[in-house]
Amino acid sequence: MNWQWFHRLGSPRWFYQKTQAWLPWLAIASVVLLVTGAIWGLGFAPQDAKQGNSYRIIFIHVPAAVLALVGYYVMAISGAIGLIWRMKLPFVVMRAAAPIGAALTFVALFTGAVWGKPTWGTYWVWDARITSMLLLLLLYIGVIALGQAFLQERTADKACAILALVGTVNIPIIYKSVDWWNSLHQPATIKLTESSSIHPSMFYPLLVMVVGFYCFYAWSLILHTRQQILVRERKTRWVQQMVASGSTRLVEEGGKA
């Protein structure tokens, strides 16, 4: 099997050059989708029969929680690729994914607390879903902290990848916690195998928000990875030449990218 294409993916310079054209499109897509979804969900979707207007926090809560879980797999799989193939770029992606994931997890926990007060009658309970989600936040923070604890970047990368991989155990636990144990949190509304228990007039704006969050996640991950690449590769010729020219765009030089 020819692995050459795969190894090219590991070059920070190749990534930096490829992604600069994607950034404006991802930015436009996330802004358009998030603004459309927010106006649709907050202004035009009907009230819920039981919860009234307070259910509208779902339009932030669910997309943030989905991306917090997906983002963890992005981080752990990048770490695994970095460990196995010893490539630079996957490690950079892994390290860049940690603060973004931590922020999304915090948003999911915070909006959940705000939602819990008017519906359940409490901001916080130690049930399986909420506690495992808090553990996810601590895992993300652990990866960030561990990455800063080592002087050598390579050692830090390896340690972070191992922590991220061990932490993947938590993701199916978070997802299934509401089915495996008695919890205060309700079971999943959007199901993969059967029809969702949310009315279409509320589901479509939610779907727009989820897709918008995916675009926003990709945009911020690429942006953060590019910034990290510049820091790590600051001693290489291509970065120094680019910075000297006063631009953050990498111009192709004579076809040898």
């Binding site: 009907p46 009230q47 359940w120 009658g121 309700q186 079971p187 509304t189 228990s197 509320m202």
Partner: peptide
Amino acid sequence: EQVLAKHDETYTPPEVQE
């Protein structure tokens, strides 16, 4: 000493509910 409401996972507009 404390009562919490556990709502279900369905979301429906009031007209559909009626």
